[in-house]
């Protein structure tokens, strides 16, 4: 660019001693550009949040490192490197939280036996320690919900907590898990499992994370106190109910009752009529 055009810059330069050489102009512009870029970068570094201590890879705790090793051995096939998920095989685990891992791995649902409508509960593959390590890894990787530590049941001093929990259970849970907690069918081979074997932690984690086909019951929908009341109802009322009326017939309701009346009642009475009619 030439400085022939009249303007306030041109007038300023007139006071200088003679025109500068082309080389000097070029060098000067390079220096000015470098200075400006350095300034801008420095200001950014000073004011931008959190970047001061940033490193390329997150520093994992020892437990998480152990968990990562387990993950890379057993889970990576479907959930991908760094738990990012594999299209058509397994979802990303970023943000699912330790609660989800503890539920899925702790109940043996993960690793899955095969790709199907829903993972089934089975004897867990990993020990409790390994499950915790895996959970720690996923937690440190992407955060997410965690099962609170401590007692997960409503305080025993609260006498009506179980009744409130029962009410919440019938509103929120029984439509899939059934009144007796025996579980029920969902569409296309999916199902709500029976609650017979579920522990306090597992029920809490399930409500918090909504595993498989279960909806999430976040703390805005059911407060931690309400979750504990539901757990108290399931564990202390439903499971402790010793079927005062006799054998519960699996608590499947009228289906097994109808079966029983024919298989037991009518069969017994038909045999009785065969016997009594033969007495003559």
């Amino acid at each position: 660019m030439t400085s022939d055009s009249p303007g306030w810059l041109g007038r300023l330069r007139r006071g200088r001693s003679g025109p500068r050489s082309r080389v000097r102009r070029r060098v000067g512009s390079v220096v000015r550009l470098t200075l400006a870029l350095t300034l801008a970068g420095g200001v950014y570094i000073v004011f931008a949040p959190g970047l001061a201590g940033a490193k390329d890879t997150p520093q994992l705790s020892t437990a998480a490192e152990e968990g990562k090793a387990l993950f890379n051995q057993s889970c990576i096939t479907c959930h991908g490197p760094n738990a990012q998920g594999v299209e058509g095989r397994g979802p990303s685990l970023i943000g699912v939280g330790a609660a989800s891992v503890e539920f899925q791995v702790g109940t043996g649902r993960m690793p899955m036996a095969r790709q199907e409508a829903q993972a089934e509960r089975k004897p867990p593959v990993f020990t409790d320690e390994q499950t915790r390590q895996l959970a720690q890894y996923i937690q440190e990787l992407g955060g997410g919900p965690q099962v609170p530590s401590g007692d997960l049941r409503a305080p025993e001093s609260d006498e009506e907590a179980i009744a409130r929990g029962g009410n919440l259970f019938r509103i929120n849970c029984s439509s899939c898990h059934a009144f007796g907690g025996g579980g029920g069918a969902l569409s296309s081979g999916k199902y709500a499992p029976g609650l017979g074997e579920a522990t306090d932690q597992q029920i809490y984690a399930a409500m918090l994370t909504g595993p498989q086909n279960m909806p999430v019951f976040g703390d805005n929908q059911l407060t931690p106190e309400q979750k504990k009341e539901i757990i108290s109802y399931i564990q202390e009322a439903l499971k402790q109910d010793r079927d005062p009326g006799g054998w519960g017939l699996g608590r499947f309701g009228p289906v097994t009752e109808g079966l029983a009346i024919f298989l037991v009642g009518i069969v017994a009475l038909v045999f009785a009529s065969l016997w009594i009619a033969g007495k003559s």
């Binding site: 029984s174 439509s175 025996g182 069918a185 709500a192 009228p254 079966l259």
Partner: peptide, 8 residues
């Protein structure tokens, strides 16, 4: 409830 059935 799941499995809400009437009598047989």
């Amino acid at each position: 409830s799941a499995a809400s059935q009437p009598d047989w």
